[in-house]
Amino acid sequence: MESRIQDKAETLRLPPILDLKAAAPLREQLLGLRGKPVELDGAEVQRLGGLCLQVLLSARDSWHNDGLPFSLGAASEAFDQSLSLFGVHADEFQSSGV
């Protein structure tokens, strides 16, 4: 939890199961955080599916477009492994803002 991002980044705690059912709610949650720096907390994640990956990646791009920080804080081993499996490196997940 070393990457303290500027001032008051909102932490979004990700649920354990990020599957098909979780994609739409996750998107809604993130939309609600637009305009604010966001740090994801993936400590509890047990499973990450393709649809939620899309949402997270799209969010990263969207934040990047806005020039706002978007980062991954804590991540469970499962979360890390899932990201690598999808060909995503955890550090690609950061958008430090401009």
């Binding site: 098909l20 994609a23 739409a24 996750l26 998107r27 993130l30 939309l31 637009r34 393709g50 649809l51 990956l53 899309q54 949402v55 990646l57 799209s58 969010a59 791009d61 969207s62 477009n65 999808f86």
Partner: peptide
Amino acid sequence: PLLEDMEPEESYL
């Protein structure tokens, strides 16, 4: 697409 434009159950990747 960006978050606003995406359908959460569409496939993009």
